[in-house]
Design a protein around this nucleic acid. Structure first.
Length: 203
DNA sequence: AAAGCCCTCAACCGCATCCTG
DNA sequence: GCAGGATGCGGTTGAGGGCTT
């Protein structure tokens, strides 16, 4: 089916945002709040698609964003969450206040993937990428997490390959596991302090 | 000092899901 | 119950910067 474009592409800017555009967007959202992304660009005087505005705000302009410097704890948490959730970046981001799904996704692809590969682990399955001796497993902190903490049955993301976007029939939102994330995570993070602070909801 | 290569991050695109009429 | 519209998510791409040769 021909999906109508989300905006009049002929009249929208694309590419990097300018300072002025940022200021307009920030000013508008401060005055009117988030929401109605489709109509926001026009109302704010921006020649941008609503999706682009939302993305810019969510990933870059939001005041509560914590940028740069992932800690080792963050790394481990992301790895564990990825083992639990797969490529559900927004869910993972939800456990890391101040971080965005895009940021985590990029960080995963650039840093953590390599980190896991260096540990001899497959970044998709979180299993040893090659038949590894037990001693090697013991060297990987996450391996112990795998075997001892994560005993839930989760079809490996790359197992079927087409788990993309969870577009499978009538499955509920998180079909793969019982997502008591808040509980499970807070009690299964051996290496991180009780940092299960809920997303900083100011006001 | 210059050229080429690699890495990182911001942004875009298309699809899936949710919500409302 | 159905259809259409809006929003959110994940994958992918391109530009810019830094590093190496």
């Amino acid at each position: 089916m021909g999906r109508s474009p989300c905006c009049e592409k002929a009249h929208t800017n694309k590419g990097a945002w300018t300072k002025e555009e940022d200021q307009r967007l920030i000013g508008y959202i401060k005055a009117h709040g988030e929401g109605c992304w489709r109509s926001l660009p026009k109302a704010a005087g921006l020649l941008r698609c609503g999706k682009s505005c939302r993305l810019r705000w969510m990933n870059y302009l939001r005041p509560d964003l914590k940028r740069g410097n992932f800690t080792d704890d963050d790394d481990e948490l992301i790895i564990k969450l990825h083992a639990l959730l797969g490529n559900k970046w927004s869910l993972i981001a939800g456990q890391l206040p101040g971080r965005t799904d895009n940021e985590i996704k990029n960080y995963w692809n650039t840093h953590i993937k390599r980190k896991l590969l260096n540990r001899g682990m497959d970044p998709h399955t979180h299993l040893p990428s090659s038949p590894a001796p037990a001693s090697r497993l013991a060297n990987a902190p996450f391996a112990s997490f795998q075997s001892s903490t994560v005993s839930f049955a989760r079809p490996s993301p790359s197992d079927d390959g087409h788990s993309s976007s969870g577009g499978s029939s009538d499955a509920p939102r998180c079909p793969d596991l019982n997502l008591d994330l808040d509980l499970d995570l807070s009690m299964s993070l051996p290496c991180s302090p009780p940092k299960t602070a809920p997303p900083a909801k100011s006001t």
